[in-house]
Design a protein around this nucleic acid. Sequence first.
DNA 1: GATAAAGGTTCCACTCACTGGAAGGTCAAG
DNA 2: CTTGACCTTCCAGTGAGTGGAACCTTTATC
Lengths: 129, 129
Amino acid sequence: MNIGEAARRSGLPTKTIRYYEDIGLVRALRDTNGYRAFVDADIHKLTFLSRARALGFSIQDCRNLLTLWEDQDRASSDVKRIAREHLSVIDQKVAELEDMRASLSDLIDSCAGDDRPDCPILKDLAASK
Amino acid sequence: MNIGEAARRSGLPTKTIRYYEDIGLVRALRDTNGYRAFVDADIHKLTFLSRARALGFSIQDCRNLLTLWEDQDRASSDVKRIAREHLSVIDQKVAELEDMRASLSDLIDSCAGDDRPDCPILKDLAASK
DNA sequence: GATAAAGGTTCCACTCACTGGAAGGTCAAG
DNA sequence: CTTGACCTTCCAGTGAGTGGAACCTTTATC
């Protein structure tokens, strides 16, 4: 299976697959013509990466998860720990964004948004606080 | 005023201030010894940038906002438009993160998290869906 | 058999918004 | 006069890819 087919099946761009090979996240056999040759196990791995990245796991997280994934004997608590750590990072990001959202929303509400030059948004941004 | 003092007053690291000068976001006069010399107006501008960046505005947004800020005659509606566009980007990010959060939270709940190797988190990540 | 399109390869540069570090110049205090 | 804090520039690296150039291989069509 060539890289294009692997991309179609895993949902990752070909560029990204090559990049993952570059940084040692995956490996692929080669055909005699130099083309990468993927087997079903590779597709599973790539799909795993695609979904984990979509869930916001960093590449380093993915590296750890892959190691756990390939270790038949690892305890599920190890995986759960990584996932929970990641969840708390997500929660933090959400909280930050909602803070931002509230501040920005207040600023927008306070601005007339008409033809006059007077704008509380800019005024507030410039205030030293 | 040297860059260290400007950093203290604006809340930006010195490195960041130099970077902002590099990319043409701000300019600073120079003393005879080559040191950057900041005046109060510069501090206002840097504070503006610091707060706008903290609200998640991109550098390009900041460029636009600064232009509007320095234009005495701009309509407040122009500023409000940029702010509203940014608000919708924030809303989108929050929605994405909450999607992620829900999926990840489900996965975590489904995992026993004990010494056994069986882990639904890894299983689900590998599923081709 | 020629050719064109589609796919593959490597390598280099760019993104965004900084951040770290090296090598060196300047200044105020003791 | 030295120490240490502060300043300067320049180069390299971050994370996670993305875009493009130059070139090679395969497949389909004429």
